[in-house]
Simulated scan of single mutants.
Amino acid sequence: MSCLTIAIPTFQRAKYLDICLASLEKNMPQTIQDDIEVLVIDNNSQDNTAEIIKKHQISMNIRYIRNKENIGPDENFKKCITKATSQYVWIFGDDDVFFPTTLENIIDILKSKETIGLIHLRAKNFYDDADILDYHVQTFSCIHMASKENFVAKIHTNITFISANIVNKEILLKTINLKDIPNNNLGQMYWNIICILKSDLNIFVTNEAFGARQFNSGSYNLCEVFGKNFIDMLYFINLKYPISSFIEIYIKRLLMFYLPANIVRIRNGLSKVECKGCFKILYTKYKFRIYFWIFTVPAMILPKKIALFIVKQIEIILKKKNS
C-alpha cells in the first residue's frame, strides 16, 4: 500500500496540468512508484483535461475522478483528502511542478520517522518554465520542530499554500469532520493547523522542493482574504482548539510585513491580486493595533516606488537572516 497520495485538484487548466503531470512522471523513479498514489480530481472541466489524463496514464498509474458538477475549490480540496488511500496526502496545485529527487527524499522521511503531523516544503517561485529546467534538489535539509508556535511562525501564511504542505490523513480525520470546515478558500489552513497541533513531530524542509508558478492564481482581494478571512478562520479554529498564541504570531507578522509587502507589490503592478477597500477592511479589524499604523498604513500612502524600494531592502535583509 502506498504511504503518500499526491492529489491534484484541477479545473479548466489542461495546459498546466499537462506540464505538472509530465514533471511528476519524469521525477518519480520506478523504485518508489509503489509508495505513491497519484490522484487527479477534475472539478467538471470542459476543456481537454480528460485527454491529458489519458495521455499520461499510458506511462503512469493515475486515478482519475471527474465530478459530475463543479463543487467549488474548497469541496474539491476536501475530496482530495477523503478519496486518498494513503496515510499522508500531498495536495498539489495543477500549475506547480515537481523537481528531481524531491519524491525520493519525501518517501525517505515518511518511512524513517515516527508519525508526522505535517511536512512543510519551501517552493521555488518561477514565472517561465525555462526558469526551472535545470533545477535540482539535493538531499533534504530538515528541521524537526518541537515548538508548535515556532513551527507556525516559520511557515506563516504558507499554511494556506496547498502544494507546500503534506498532511497526515489519519490524524486529520480522527480529529475533525471536514464538513464542519467553512468554504472560504482557506479550509486547507484549518486541517494543516490541526495536524500540527495533534502531532509531536512536524518537519520544515529548508530546500526549495518544488516549483510554484507565479501570477497564475484566480483573482482575489488580498485584504479580504488575508486581512479578514484568514484571521477569522483562526478565531473559528480557536473555538474548539486553543491556538491564541498562534493568532498573535500571525497578526503581528501580517501587519509588519506580509500585508504591507503585498499591498506595495499590487500598487506597483507586480501582482494580479486585488486590493479594493483595503484601508476600510483592515481599519475595522486592526485600528487598535500599533503595527497597523507603523507598518501597514505607510504601505498604502507612501509614494509607491519608495515603498517598493523599502520592501526590497527588507526582503534582502530577511533573506540573509534566513540563509
Rank of each mutant, 00 (worst) to 15 (best):
Gln214Ile: 14
Glu37Asp: 07
Asp180Ala: 14
Asn229Lys: 13
Lys113Ile: 09
His144Ser: 10
Met189Glu: 07
Ala14Tyr: 03
Ile166Arg: 03
Glu75Ser: 11
Lys312Trp: 10
Asp131Asn: 02
Tyr283Cys: 05
Ile19Lys: 14
Lys111Met: 04
Lys240Ser: 15
Ile251Thr: 07
Pro29Met: 06
Asn221Thr: 12
Asn61Asp: 09
Trp293Phe: 05
Phe140Ser: 02
Met300Asn: 00
Asp96Ala: 08
Phe230Asp: 00
Ile176Tyr: 05
Ser86Phe: 09
Ile155Pro: 04
Tyr135Lys: 05
Lys55Ser: 06
Ile8Ser: 01
Lys124Thr: 12
Tyr64Phe: 11
Lys198His: 13
Met145Phe: 11
Ser323Trp: 09
Ile194Ser: 06
Asn27Gly: 06
Phe210Ser: 02
Ile65Ala: 06
Thr206Trp: 06
Thr296Leu: 07
Asp96Glu: 04
Glu25Ser: 15
Pro260Ala: 11
Ile19Ser: 09
Phe309Met: 07
Thr85Tyr: 13
Ile249Val: 09
Met300Ala: 01
Ile65Ser: 07
Cys195Tyr: 03
Ser59Lys: 15
Phe99Trp: 06
Phe230Ser: 00
Glu104Ala: 11
Ser323Tyr: 12
Ile109Ala: 04
Tyr220Glu: 01
Ile171Phe: 09
Leu24Asp: 01
Asn202Val: 11
Ser59Trp: 08
Val297Arg: 01
Thr102Ser: 10
Glu170His: 10
Lys169Thr: 09
Lys304His: 01
Ile176Phe: 07
Met189Phe: 11
Asn158Tyr: 15
Glu51Lys: 15
Ile155Asp: 03
Val167Ile: 15
Leu259Gln: 05
Ile132Cys: 02
Ser112Met: 02
Thr10Lys: 09
Ile237Asn: 04
Gln46Pro: 05
Leu118Gln: 11
Ile281Ala: 04
Phe151Asn: 02
Ala209Thr: 13
His144Thr: 14
Gln214Arg: 14
Leu302Arg: 00
Ile106His: 04
Val225Asn: 04
Leu118Asn: 12
Asn158Thr: 15
Ile294Glu: 01
Ala164Cys: 12
Thr175Cys: 12
Asn48Ser: 05
Lys154Met: 14
Lys68His: 09
Ile8Val: 07
Lys68Thr: 14
Ile52Trp: 02
Ile159Lys: 04
Ile281Asp: 00
Val273Glu: 07
Ile116Phe: 02
Lys54His: 09
Leu110Cys: 01
Asn185Ser: 13
Phe257Lys: 02
Gln87Met: 14
Ala307Pro: 00
Ile65Pro: 01
Phe257Cys: 00
Tyr88Pro: 05
Val152Cys: 08
Cys3Ile: 15
Thr5Ser: 01
Ala123Tyr: 07
Asn207Pro: 02
Glu315Phe: 12
Ser245Phe: 10
Val273Phe: 11
Glu75Tyr: 12
Ile294Met: 06
Thr10Tyr: 03
Val273Lys: 13
Gln30Cys: 13
Asp108Ile: 12
Trp90Lys: 06
Asp131Tyr: 01
Ser271Arg: 10
Tyr235His: 11
Cys20Gln: 03
Leu201Arg: 03
Gln87Cys: 12
Ile317Thr: 15
Leu173Val: 15
Glu114Ile: 15
Ile316Asp: 04
Asn27Val: 10
Val225Leu: 11
Phe77Cys: 06
Ile109Thr: 09
Ile58Phe: 12
Lys320Met: 14
Leu110Lys: 02
Tyr127Cys: 06
Thr296Phe: 05
Asn168Trp: 08
Ser163Cys: 05
Ile19Val: 15
Ile32Asn: 03
Thr31Gly: 03
Ile193Val: 14
